[in-house]
Protein backbone atom coordinates (compact mmCIF):
# COMPACT_ATOMS: atom_id res chain seq x y z
CA UNK A 1 0.00 0.00 0.00
CA UNK A 2 1.28 3.46 -0.88
CA UNK A 3 2.43 5.20 2.31
CA UNK A 4 1.02 8.71 1.87
CA UNK A 5 3.12 11.05 4.03
CA UNK A 6 -0.04 12.80 5.22
CA UNK A 7 -1.34 9.51 6.63
CA UNK A 8 2.00 8.61 8.25
CA UNK A 9 2.04 12.06 9.91
CA UNK A 10 -1.63 11.77 10.87
CA UNK A 11 -1.35 8.39 12.60
CA UNK A 12 1.97 9.08 14.38
CA UNK A 13 1.27 12.68 15.47
CA UNK A 14 -2.31 12.15 16.58
CA UNK A 15 -1.30 8.83 18.17
CA UNK A 16 1.34 10.60 20.27
CA UNK A 17 -1.05 13.43 21.14
CA UNK A 18 -3.78 11.03 22.27
CA UNK A 19 -1.17 9.03 24.20
CA UNK A 20 -0.16 12.21 26.07
CA UNK A 21 -3.83 12.96 26.81
CA UNK A 22 -4.33 9.40 28.09
CA UNK A 23 -1.41 9.71 30.54
CA UNK A 24 -2.46 13.24 31.56
CA UNK A 25 -5.95 11.92 32.24
CA UNK A 26 -5.01 8.81 34.19
CA UNK A 27 -1.89 9.95 36.08
CA UNK A 28 -3.23 13.48 36.59
CA UNK A 29 -6.45 12.15 38.12
CA UNK A 30 -4.31 9.90 40.33
CA UNK A 31 -2.34 12.94 41.46
CA UNK A 32 0.95 11.58 40.16
CA UNK A 33 1.87 14.45 37.81
CA UNK A 34 3.51 17.78 38.70
CA UNK A 35 1.01 20.63 39.22
CA UNK A 36 3.46 23.37 38.21
CA UNK A 37 1.52 25.68 35.82
CA UNK A 38 4.18 25.64 33.04
CA UNK A 39 3.96 21.83 32.87
CA UNK A 40 0.18 21.69 32.54
CA UNK A 41 0.13 24.47 29.94
CA UNK A 42 2.97 22.99 27.85
CA UNK A 43 1.67 19.42 28.09
CA UNK A 44 -1.91 20.24 27.01
CA UNK A 45 -0.68 22.64 24.33
CA UNK A 46 1.65 20.04 22.83
CA UNK A 47 -0.93 17.25 23.01
CA UNK A 48 -3.65 19.34 21.37
CA UNK A 49 -1.19 20.63 18.76
CA UNK A 50 -0.16 17.06 17.86
CA UNK A 51 -3.75 15.87 17.65
CA UNK A 52 -4.74 18.91 15.60
CA UNK A 53 -1.75 18.57 13.28
CA UNK A 54 -2.60 14.91 12.74
CA UNK A 55 -6.26 15.56 12.02
CA UNK A 56 -5.46 18.39 9.61
CA UNK A 57 -2.79 16.25 7.92
CA UNK A 58 -5.34 13.47 7.48
CA UNK A 59 -7.38 15.73 5.21
CA UNK A 60 -4.41 16.45 2.91
CA UNK A 61 -4.83 13.25 0.93
CA UNK A 62 -8.53 13.86 0.30
CA UNK A 63 -9.69 14.70 -3.19
CA UNK A 64 -12.29 17.10 -1.77
CA UNK A 65 -11.21 18.58 1.56
CA UNK A 66 -14.11 21.05 1.51
CA UNK A 67 -16.50 18.10 1.93
CA UNK A 68 -14.59 16.48 4.81
CA UNK A 69 -17.37 17.43 7.25
CA UNK A 70 -19.59 14.85 5.56
CA UNK A 71 -17.32 12.14 7.00
CA UNK A 72 -18.96 12.55 10.43
CA UNK A 73 -22.23 11.05 9.20
CA UNK A 74 -21.62 7.32 8.68
CA UNK A 75 -20.47 6.27 12.16
CA UNK A 76 -22.89 3.35 12.10
CA UNK A 77 -20.86 1.41 9.52
CA UNK A 78 -17.56 3.17 8.82
CA UNK A 79 -14.51 3.15 11.11
CA UNK A 80 -13.17 6.22 9.33
CA UNK A 81 -16.35 8.06 10.23
CA UNK A 82 -16.23 6.75 13.81
CA UNK A 83 -12.65 7.98 14.08
CA UNK A 84 -13.70 11.45 13.00
CA UNK A 85 -16.61 11.55 15.48
CA UNK A 86 -14.46 10.22 18.33
CA UNK A 87 -11.66 12.68 17.54
CA UNK A 88 -13.97 15.67 17.72
CA UNK A 89 -15.88 14.35 20.75
CA UNK A 90 -12.58 13.93 22.64
CA UNK A 91 -12.11 17.69 22.60
CA UNK A 92 -15.03 18.08 25.05
CA UNK A 93 -13.47 16.29 28.06
CA UNK A 94 -10.06 17.66 27.02
CA UNK A 95 -11.38 21.22 27.20
CA UNK A 96 -12.99 20.58 30.62
CA UNK A 97 -10.04 18.74 32.10
CA UNK A 98 -7.33 20.93 30.54
CA UNK A 99 -9.24 24.08 31.53
CA UNK A 100 -9.62 22.89 35.12
CA UNK A 101 -5.95 21.97 35.28
CA UNK A 102 -4.42 24.99 33.57
CA UNK A 103 -6.82 27.76 34.62
CA UNK A 104 -7.96 26.57 38.06
CA UNK A 105 -5.15 24.22 39.05
CA UNK A 106 -7.70 21.50 39.90
CA UNK A 107 -7.43 17.84 38.91
CA UNK A 108 -9.29 16.12 41.73
CA UNK A 109 -12.90 15.27 42.47
CA UNK A 110 -15.18 16.02 39.53
CA UNK A 111 -12.15 17.18 37.52
CA UNK A 112 -10.65 13.72 37.86
CA UNK A 113 -13.79 12.31 36.17
CA UNK A 114 -13.10 14.61 33.23
CA UNK A 115 -9.52 13.31 33.29
CA UNK A 116 -10.61 9.70 33.07
CA UNK A 117 -13.08 10.62 30.30
CA UNK A 118 -10.21 12.33 28.45
CA UNK A 119 -8.09 9.19 28.69
CA UNK A 120 -10.95 6.92 27.65
CA UNK A 121 -11.94 9.03 24.65
CA UNK A 122 -8.29 9.44 23.57
CA UNK A 123 -7.73 5.68 23.57
CA UNK A 124 -11.08 5.06 21.89
CA UNK A 125 -10.06 7.43 19.08
CA UNK A 126 -6.75 5.62 18.60
CA UNK A 127 -8.65 2.32 18.51
CA UNK A 128 -10.93 3.73 15.78
CA UNK A 129 -7.85 4.82 13.80
CA UNK A 130 -6.42 1.31 14.05
CA UNK A 131 -9.72 -0.21 12.92
CA UNK A 132 -9.77 1.89 9.73
CA UNK A 133 -6.94 -0.44 8.69
CA UNK A 134 -7.82 -3.46 10.83
CA UNK A 135 -11.27 -3.74 9.25
CA UNK A 136 -9.91 -4.15 5.71
CA UNK A 137 -10.05 -7.84 4.84
CA UNK A 138 -8.34 -7.08 1.56
CA UNK A 139 -5.02 -6.34 3.30
CA UNK A 140 -3.99 -9.39 5.37
CA UNK A 141 -1.10 -7.46 6.98
CA UNK A 142 -3.74 -5.16 8.52
CA UNK A 143 -6.65 -7.53 9.08
CA UNK A 144 -5.25 -9.29 12.15
CA UNK A 145 -5.20 -9.13 15.93
CA UNK A 146 -1.83 -7.37 16.16
CA UNK A 147 -2.82 -4.06 14.59
CA UNK A 148 -5.08 -2.51 17.24
CA UNK A 149 -2.82 -3.45 20.19
CA UNK A 150 0.16 -2.01 18.29
CA UNK A 151 -1.63 1.30 17.63
CA UNK A 152 -2.79 1.60 21.24
CA UNK A 153 0.52 0.64 22.87
CA UNK A 154 2.59 2.76 20.49
CA UNK A 155 0.28 5.69 21.20
CA UNK A 156 0.87 5.26 24.95
CA UNK A 157 4.64 4.78 24.44
CA UNK A 158 5.08 7.88 22.26
CA UNK A 159 2.74 9.95 24.46
CA UNK A 160 4.63 8.80 27.57
CA UNK A 161 8.03 9.74 26.14
CA UNK A 162 6.78 13.17 25.05
CA UNK A 163 5.07 13.81 28.39
CA UNK A 164 8.26 12.77 30.22
CA UNK A 165 10.24 15.23 28.13
CA UNK A 166 7.75 18.04 28.79
CA UNK A 167 7.78 17.22 32.52
CA UNK A 168 11.57 17.07 32.68
CA UNK A 169 11.93 20.38 30.85
CA UNK A 170 9.24 22.32 32.74
CA UNK A 171 9.11 20.69 36.18
CA UNK A 172 10.33 17.25 37.15
CA UNK A 173 9.65 13.92 35.45
CA UNK A 174 7.70 11.76 37.91
CA UNK A 175 9.26 8.27 38.21
CA UNK A 176 5.81 6.62 37.90
CA UNK A 177 5.41 8.12 34.43
CA UNK A 178 8.93 7.07 33.43
CA UNK A 179 8.39 3.49 34.62
CA UNK A 180 5.03 3.18 32.87
CA UNK A 181 6.54 4.64 29.69
CA UNK A 182 9.39 2.11 29.84
CA UNK A 183 6.76 -0.61 30.21
CA UNK A 184 4.82 0.73 27.20
CA UNK A 185 8.00 0.90 25.10
CA UNK A 186 8.91 -2.68 25.98
CA UNK A 187 5.37 -3.87 25.29
CA UNK A 188 5.36 -1.93 22.02
CA UNK A 189 8.58 -3.60 20.92
CA UNK A 190 7.15 -7.02 21.75
CA UNK A 191 3.91 -6.32 19.85
CA UNK A 192 5.77 -5.02 16.80
CA UNK A 193 8.07 -8.06 16.83
CA UNK A 194 5.02 -10.31 16.98
CA UNK A 195 3.34 -8.29 14.23
CA UNK A 196 6.34 -8.56 11.94
CA UNK A 197 6.62 -12.29 12.55
CA UNK A 198 2.92 -12.64 11.76
CA UNK A 199 3.02 -10.74 8.46
CA UNK A 200 6.19 -12.53 7.33
CA UNK A 201 4.13 -15.70 7.04
CA UNK A 202 2.39 -15.51 3.66
CA UNK A 203 -1.40 -15.37 3.85
CA UNK A 204 -2.88 -18.19 1.78
CA UNK A 205 -6.58 -17.29 2.06
CA UNK A 206 -6.61 -15.49 -1.29
CA UNK A 207 -4.38 -16.51 -4.18
CA UNK A 208 -4.14 -15.90 -7.92
CA UNK A 209 -6.24 -19.08 -8.22
CA UNK A 210 -9.11 -17.85 -6.00
CA UNK A 211 -8.95 -14.31 -7.43
CA UNK A 212 -9.51 -15.52 -10.99
CA UNK A 213 -11.50 -18.61 -10.00
CA UNK A 214 -9.31 -20.50 -12.47
CA UNK A 215 -7.68 -22.59 -9.78
CA UNK A 216 -10.34 -25.22 -10.57
CA UNK A 217 -8.49 -25.80 -13.86
CA UNK A 218 -4.88 -25.48 -12.84
CA UNK A 219 -2.05 -23.21 -11.78
CA UNK A 220 -2.61 -19.56 -12.76
CA UNK A 221 0.03 -17.20 -14.09
CA UNK A 222 -0.63 -13.62 -15.17
CA UNK A 223 0.28 -13.41 -18.84
CA UNK A 224 -0.85 -10.01 -20.12
CA UNK A 225 -1.50 -6.87 -18.12
CA UNK A 226 -4.77 -5.13 -19.01
CA UNK A 227 -2.95 -1.85 -19.49
CA UNK A 228 0.50 -1.00 -20.81
CA UNK A 229 0.97 2.02 -18.53
CA UNK A 230 0.35 2.43 -14.82
CA UNK A 231 -3.09 2.90 -13.29
CA UNK A 232 -4.38 4.40 -10.05
CA UNK A 233 -5.06 1.01 -8.49
CA UNK A 234 -1.47 -0.14 -8.96
CA UNK A 235 -0.01 3.19 -7.81
CA UNK A 236 -2.14 3.06 -4.67
CA UNK A 237 -2.11 -0.65 -3.87
CA UNK A 238 0.77 -2.14 -5.80
CA UNK A 239 3.48 -0.25 -3.87
CA UNK A 240 6.62 -2.39 -3.78
CA UNK A 241 9.48 -0.08 -2.80
CA UNK A 242 9.68 -1.20 0.84
CA UNK A 243 10.20 -4.89 0.19
CA UNK A 244 13.87 -4.52 -0.71
CA UNK A 245 14.72 -2.50 2.39
CA UNK A 246 12.19 -3.90 4.86
CA UNK A 247 14.82 -5.61 7.05
CA UNK A 248 17.01 -2.51 7.31
CA UNK A 249 14.06 -0.22 7.95
CA UNK A 250 12.72 -2.51 10.67
CA UNK A 251 16.11 -2.40 12.42
CA UNK A 252 16.13 1.41 12.16
CA UNK A 253 12.60 1.54 13.62
CA UNK A 254 13.59 -0.77 16.49
CA UNK A 255 16.77 1.15 17.34
CA UNK A 256 15.41 4.69 17.03
CA UNK A 257 11.86 4.00 18.15
CA UNK A 258 12.42 1.57 21.01
CA UNK A 259 16.04 0.77 21.95
CA UNK A 260 17.40 4.33 22.29
CA UNK A 261 14.32 5.73 24.12
CA UNK A 262 14.37 2.71 26.46
CA UNK A 263 18.06 3.26 27.21
CA UNK A 264 17.72 7.03 27.65
CA UNK A 265 14.70 6.80 29.96
CA UNK A 266 16.30 3.93 31.87
CA UNK A 267 19.35 6.07 32.55
CA UNK A 268 17.20 8.90 33.92
CA UNK A 269 15.81 6.50 36.54
CA UNK A 270 19.28 5.38 37.60
CA UNK A 271 21.23 8.61 37.36
CA UNK A 272 20.23 12.08 38.53
CA UNK A 273 20.93 15.07 36.28
CA UNK A 274 20.71 15.31 32.47
CA UNK A 275 17.04 14.19 32.73
CA UNK A 276 15.88 17.02 30.48
CA UNK A 277 18.46 16.35 27.78
CA UNK A 278 17.99 12.57 27.92
CA UNK A 279 14.19 12.62 27.72
CA UNK A 280 14.34 15.23 24.95
CA UNK A 281 16.78 13.03 23.01
CA UNK A 282 14.51 10.04 23.63
CA UNK A 283 11.54 11.98 22.20
CA UNK A 284 13.42 13.03 19.06
CA UNK A 285 14.73 9.50 18.45
CA UNK A 286 11.30 7.98 19.05
CA UNK A 287 9.68 10.41 16.63
CA UNK A 288 12.02 9.35 13.84
CA UNK A 289 11.72 5.66 14.72
CA UNK A 290 7.92 5.68 14.88
CA UNK A 291 7.70 7.54 11.55
CA UNK A 292 9.73 4.72 9.97
CA UNK A 293 7.58 2.11 11.74
CA UNK A 294 4.38 3.70 10.45
CA UNK A 295 5.78 4.12 6.94
CA UNK A 296 6.58 0.39 6.94
CA UNK A 297 3.09 -0.44 8.22
CA UNK A 298 1.74 0.91 4.94
CA UNK A 299 4.59 0.11 2.56
CA UNK A 300 4.91 -3.54 3.59
CA UNK A 301 1.19 -4.28 3.43
CA UNK A 302 0.05 -6.09 0.30
CA UNK A 303 -3.44 -5.80 -1.16
CA UNK A 304 -5.23 -8.82 -2.64
CA UNK A 305 -5.89 -6.90 -5.88
CA UNK A 306 -2.21 -7.48 -6.74
CA UNK A 307 -3.16 -11.16 -7.18
CA UNK A 308 -4.79 -10.13 -10.47
CA UNK A 309 -1.53 -8.51 -11.51
CA UNK A 310 0.92 -11.36 -11.10
CA UNK A 311 1.40 -11.81 -7.36
CA UNK A 312 0.77 -15.39 -6.26
CA UNK A 313 0.25 -14.70 -2.55
CA UNK A 314 -0.24 -11.67 -0.33
Amino acid sequence: MRPAYSIVLFTTASGAGYGMLAWLGILGAAGLLPMAPPFGLAAFALAVALVGTGLIASTFHLGHRERAWRAFSQWRSSWLSREGVAAVATFVPVALYGGGWVLLGRTQGPWAVAGLATAGMALLTVYCTSMIYGSLKTVPAWHNGWVSPAYLILSLASGGVLLSAVAALTAEAPPELTRLTLLALAAGLAVKAGYWRHIDRPDDASTAETATGLGRIGAVRALLSPHTADNWVLREMGYRVARRHAGTLRRIAVILGFALPLAALGVTLAVAGFTGALTFAAAVSLGAGFAVERWLFFAEARHVVTLFYGEQRT
Binding site: M1, H61, L62, G63, H64, R65, R67, A68, R70, A71, S78, L80, I132, L136, K137, T138, V139, S206, A211, N231, W232, V233, E236, M237, H303, V304, V305, F308
Partner: peptide, 23 residues
Amino acid sequence: WCIGCGLCAWACPYGAREMDGQA
Protein backbone atom coordinates in the same frame (compact mmCIF):
# COMPACT_ATOMS: atom_id res chain seq x y z
CA TRP B 1 -20.76 13.62 -1.67
CA CYS B 2 -17.51 11.75 -2.35
CA ILE B 3 -14.52 13.27 -0.52
CA GLY B 4 -12.01 11.24 -2.52
CA CYS B 5 -10.47 9.47 0.49
CA GLY B 6 -9.97 6.27 -1.47
CA LEU B 7 -10.92 3.95 1.40
CA CYS B 8 -13.60 2.19 -0.69
CA ALA B 9 -10.97 1.24 -3.26
CA TRP B 10 -8.78 -0.16 -0.46
CA ALA B 11 -11.76 -2.20 0.77
CA CYS B 12 -12.55 -3.68 -2.65
CA PRO B 13 -10.72 -6.98 -3.33
CA TYR B 14 -11.30 -6.68 -7.07
CA GLY B 15 -9.64 -3.34 -7.89
CA ALA B 16 -12.95 -2.25 -9.36
CA ARG B 17 -12.77 1.38 -8.24
CA GLU B 18 -10.43 3.96 -9.70
CA MET B 19 -9.97 7.55 -8.57
CA ASP B 20 -10.54 10.09 -11.31
CA GLY B 21 -7.45 12.28 -11.62
CA GLN B 22 -9.43 15.32 -12.74
CA ALA B 23 -12.62 15.33 -10.67
